[in-house]
C-alpha cells in the first residue's frame, strides 16, 4: 500500500489539478486548504511527499515545511509550488540548502515537470 501524497493549496482548483496528475499515476492524495489544516494532517498522517503552496492565508508555506522538517518519524519530502517565487529565488535556494524543501516547482508548470519531480522523490521500492 502506497503512502498518500499531501497537496496543500488554498485554491481548490489548484488542488484538483495536482490531484488529477498524481492520481493518474495510481497514487493516493490528501488535500489541505490552509497551513493549519496541513500541519494537523502532517502530524496525524504518514505522507511520502508534500506539494506545498508557498503562500497560504494563515501561514507561510515555508513555515509548514519547517515544521515538517522537524518531524522525527516519517519525515516527508516537501516540494514548494509557487507563482510568487522563481526558480533561483534566494529564498528558495536557502530553503533547499537548509534541507527544509527538496524541490521547487514554479506555477504554471507542465504536468511532466510535476511528475518528474514526484518520481525523483518517491521511494524506489514502490
Amino acid at each position: 500500500m502506497n503512502t498518500p501524497i499531501l497537496i496543500v493549496d488554498d485554491e481548490p482548483d489548484m488542488c484538483w489539478v495536482i490531484s488529477q496528475i498524481i492520481q493518474s499515476q495510481g497514487l493516493n492524495v490528501v488535500t489541505a486548504y490552509s497551513g493549519e489544516d496541513a500541519c494537523f494532517k502532517l502530524a496525524n498522517g504518514d505522507f511520502s511527499v508534500v506539494f506545498l503552496d508557498a503562500k497560504l492565508p494563515d501561514m507561510d508555506g515555508l513555515e509548514v515545511a519547517r515544521r515538517a522538517s522537524t518531524m522525527i518519524n516519517n519525515r516527508p519530502r516537501v516540494v514548494l509550488v509557487s507563482g510568487y517565487h522563481y526558480q533561483d529565488d534566494p529564498v528558495v535556494r536557502h530553503a533547499i540548502d537548509d534541507g527544509i524543501i527538496c524541490s521547487f516547482l514554479a506555477k504554471p508548470f507542465t504536468n511532466e515537470e510535476l511528475l518528474k519531480i514526484l518520481n525523483s522523490l518517491l521511494p524506489t521500492d514502490r
Binding site: 482548483d13 489548484m14 506555477k107 504554471p108 508548470f109 504536468n111
Partner: peptide, 14 residues
C-alpha cells in the same frame, strides 16, 4: 503575480 499565476497553472495543466 502570484494571483494570476494560480489560474494560469490550472489552465495550463487542464
Amino acid at each position: 503575480a502570484h494571483e494570476i499565476r494560480n489560474p494560469l497553472a490550472v489552465c495550463s495543466s487542464s
